[in-house]
Each structure stands twice: as structure tokens, then as C-alpha cells.
Write a protein that binds this DNA or RNA. Sequence first.
DNA 1: CCCGGCCACAACCAACGGTTGTGGCCCTAG
DNA 2: CTAGGGCCACAACCGTTGGTTGTGGCCGGG
Lengths: 311, 311
Amino acid sequence: MDLDTVRTFVAAADAGQFQGAAAELALTQQAVSKRIAALERSLGVRLFTRTARGAELTIDGQAFLPHARELLRVAERAAASVRTGRRPLRVDVIASRGAPSGLMRGFHRAHPEIELDVMMLFGIDTAVAAVRSGAIDASFRAVGMPGRPLPEDIESVRVLDEPLQLLTGPAHALASARSVTLAELAGHRIWMPGLVPGTEWAAYYDGLAAEFGLTIEATGPNFGSDALLDTVADTPALATFMGEQTRLVWPAGHGLRRIPVTGPTPVYPHSLLWHRDHPHPALATLRAHLGAAASGHDAAGTWTPGWVTAR
Amino acid sequence: MDLDTVRTFVAAADAGQFQGAAAELALTQQAVSKRIAALERSLGVRLFTRTARGAELTIDGQAFLPHARELLRVAERAAASVRTGRRPLRVDVIASRGAPSGLMRGFHRAHPEIELDVMMLFGIDTAVAAVRSGAIDASFRAVGMPGRPLPEDIESVRVLDEPLQLLTGPAHALASARSVTLAELAGHRIWMPGLVPGTEWAAYYDGLAAEFGLTIEATGPNFGSDALLDTVADTPALATFMGEQTRLVWPAGHGLRRIPVTGPTPVYPHSLLWHRDHPHPALATLRAHLGAAASGHDAAGTWTPGWVTAR
DNA sequence: CCCGGCCACAACCAACGGTTGTGGCCCTAG
DNA sequence: CTAGGGCCACAACCGTTGGTTGTGGCCGGG
């Protein structure tokens, strides 16, 4: 199926005749006729009944028409997604189920007119390079990591401090705790596959482990969150950290527990990064939205690494 | 933009290399290379970075990928909509804003897994012919109209009795009435453009007008519901009937009034029609849904034409 | 250092998709 | 009834597109 052919179909349906569609598309009537015939052959149904004064849709044609329009809309959006110049606001989030993803969903609900492309890059270095090059318009990351100062032309603002929770299976020693302190976690095995050295989130957990004497293991291949949850659910000695706002596809019957962490509560600092010089037109709207949505969290009783810039 | 090219792009992105995509699509590597190059040229951006052991997506490519997948999904649905054999359930409703449309929305919410094509045919004759031919799977219509018995192979069941309301502008004599009786409407001008002789809805209003001595005018071209509402809002002497469940795009500030009609309340009898012999697999689900959703309306105090089959 | 894997470029060729020319059908006006 | 106009389909023709095969360059691993 060819999109030009679909466009021709829609034009013919709107015009009610092939001739008119041909004029609109700067084609001959014969070309339109051939295109429609080809489309009908490929679909295996007749789309128009040809009459002496035009062509009108068959029932199959009527059924196909809205789908054809939708197809053209989607194609237009797809092309717009990579158009240089005015294109959808392209934002990098750290993971599809994480808190920044939720922030973007909220932004989309508040501003459905702003076209969005949400993507996931790998690590703050890639993200910063992409923001600097203009390939993306903004990124949610934790900034300030030692040895990786933000370039001068990148601006950032803290938009969300997300408390971490402990995730355990039902047989874990802490499974029935209402809450746990970081001190109580010393000696327990915390498993976080996917913690890649050199990334900002690895630096965060390294700092957390060092400061409170935790054992955080990043060993083993990262088979994705489903496999992680399965393993944690089945292994009494394993637990993992997870953002409070992380959306889980909670496997039914696994009995996974989310346990708040206190004394202090580790919070993951999400900042929005963007380029100082050539911001996307919709970026201001995003910043305003995030500023309004940011609840004034109290920093007391929480922990962030020393390298995180104060709010 | 060509859908085969988009398919090639997705295959290459999934495979991580052109060679693998070529094998999957039964093409040569060179053909894939040319297609991708053509797509990049038409979009004006580079989608892959070519490396010695494959090709990986650029950021633009990553942004484009989900749109490309969506495009293929929509194309698949479009093709399925006219596929002979297993295809989406195709249902004819009397108007896009009317009650049957609402019933189908409810059905879709209850059964999002069932693919639907909702369409609007013209009159019960067209609808019955389409159902008999298998071109559509079901139709919502008022059945029993004099001289138009349903063919033997068409079955029907009453699914909704929709009370009619009077719609008036703010300056209409009845505008401030809490409710009106049919007797009170005698002498008032009821305007219903679009009431085409020979259709089942024209027969309905003809019967209504005859039995209660109403003046129903079908004169003038039907410029659509917006124009109708505008005129009714501005003309003190005009009113119109409208189904209780009809969704209006209520023009702000027009002061249109919806007034219940009583003594008796005219109700429009929506029946579901389908073919006795070769029903669509999902039709049973639709009938079950409509049966469950149908509130047991009390027929007392309501009016339907004599030709309407009892429930 | 060489080999293997992968992609790009070039040359060639079939097939697709456009054009012009023409004929048939249907409706309308004279 | 007939002539004419409007519209679509078919046929012939032709340029361009998109496929193939053949080949060369680049990069990484043994």
C-alpha cells in the first residue's frame, strides 16, 4: 500500500469524482483511475462505484475512508517528528516507567496541543551531547555527578525529588515492615541489575551504598524489569530500590512489597536539562508546567548525594 | 513516503543491521541500503549511523521509530477494515451524534479488544440491503415501517427506546416550560430539515404529526446540525425534536433549551438488525452487551408508531 | 596482518506509474 | 430522438524508479 495512493483515494472520496481529485493532485484523470484501481486490487475490494457523473464510495470504501485519513494523519506526524525546524518537543526520560515519564504524561494531559516525542537515551553523557547538538530539546537527568560538570551552554533545574522505596518479595526478612531505615539495610543484599558504571544513576547508588554501608550488587545481565521483579519476588535474600512513582506492571500473586525507606529517605533528584541558546518554542511551556506541578518537597529527612546541586 | 520503505526501516532498526533486515524481507542488502537512503533523503535526516558491524539508530531514528511502528499498525488496521472474511465488526448507526453511536461507544469501552467500524448509511432500505449482502454486520434502525417488512433472513431486536425532547431557542413561547405535552405542540412549527420521504425516520415523524395534529416541516436544505441549531436558536417561532441522548456541540451562549415532552412521551425505537445466516463472530458479544445495557424502560406513558413491533 | 562481516557505489534491467489518445456510457438539453 | 458534454476505462508509449548482481572500502577480531 502506497501513501500517495491512499492520498489519492481520500481526495477522490472528498471530490466525489476522479477528475476533481486529479485536478487537485495535479495529475491526469487516468492516473487517478489507475491508482484507485491498483488500490482496489491490492485490497481485494471495490472502493468506488463508477457512475456517469463521478464516483461514489461503496460501503467498503466508506469503511476504509476513516482509516485512510488516520493513516495520512499518522504519516504526517511521523514526518513531523524528524522535521528540522518546527518539530515536536523531543524529551529524553530515564525510563519509560519512571517518574519523568509520569511528568510528561501529566504535561501531555495539560497541553494536548503540544506534540511530543518522548525517548530514552543512555546515560547523562549521551543526553547532554544530544541536548547540545539540538538533537533533543530537553532531558530529565540527575546532574552534578563528580567529574562531569554540565557544559556552560546547558541549563538545568531540579524538578522532582523522588523518594526511593525498597521492593521485596513476600519471604524477605523485611517484607512485613511498615518502613525501614537505611541503617537497617546494611548487610542486606540490594540487587540492581542495569546499574552501568559511569552513568549518573550508578554514581547515585554508589554514593548511597558508600555513605550507609549498603551492599548494592549490579551483577548479572539486565533482562528487564519483569525478570527483575520475578527474581526479587522469589528470592528471600534479595531486595531492590525503586522510585516511589515508578509504575510497575505488578505481576498478580507475586506478593511484592513496596516499603518506604526513612532515616533519612533517599530521594532521586530529577532535573530538567535544556540548551541555553536555542530552546524549542514549547520548552517554556514545559518548564512552566513542571514549575507549577513541583510540590514543594521538604528536604529535611531526605538524602541526596553531596554532588547534587541544591534546589 | 512508502509503507514498504517504512517496514524496511523498522526491520533494520530491529535487526540492528541492514543485512539481517534484508534476509527477513527477502531482499538483497543493497536494496535495503537504497530504501533507507531514500527514506533519509525524503525526510531530510540521517536515521542510522553505519558502523562496521551493523547500523544503529541516530536520535532522529529513535524518534521516528515509534511513529513508523504506529504507521504500520494503522495500515494494518486499514487493510483489515475491508478484508473479506475476518474483519472488524461493521455497524451502521443512524447518525454520528445519535443514541446508537453512544451505544457503540459504550460497547467499545466494554470490549476494547473487538475492532469496530462504525458507519452511517442512508435509510433503512440501504441498510437492510447492506446487511443482506454481508457488506455490514449490523445496523441500528427503526423497523416495521408500513410497506417495508423486514426480509425473512434479517433478524432484529429492540435495543433502545429513546425519548424525544423539544429543542427551542430562548425566545420561543415554550422556552421556559419545564415540560410540554404533545397536545400543547399543536399549532407550533416543528422544523426538521433532513426528513427525507421514504425513510424510516420520516415515517416515524409523519405518524407522530398525524396522530397529534402537529405541524412538522421538512422544508429547506439540510445544512447540518450546526446550521439547524443556529436557526432554531435565533427563530422564536421554530422548534425541533431531538433524541434525549443526542450529543450536541452546544454553541455557547445560544441559550438553546431542551424540553422534555410528555403526555405521552414520544420515544424513538432503535432496533439492532443483523443477518440470520452468516453473523459476524463478534455480533453475539454486541447483542449480549446491548441486552445487558438495555434498561427496562417502561412503555407506559410513551408513544411509538403503530407499525413498531412490540418489544 | 589478514580475514570476515557489513555497508556503499556502479551498472544493468524489468516493471511500475505517469502521459496522451480514444472510446463508451449516461444524463441533459434542444 | 438526437447531439453534446462530462466522466471513467482501456491501450499504447515512455521515463523513472527500484530491484538485482558485481565490487570496493572500512572496521574489528583472531
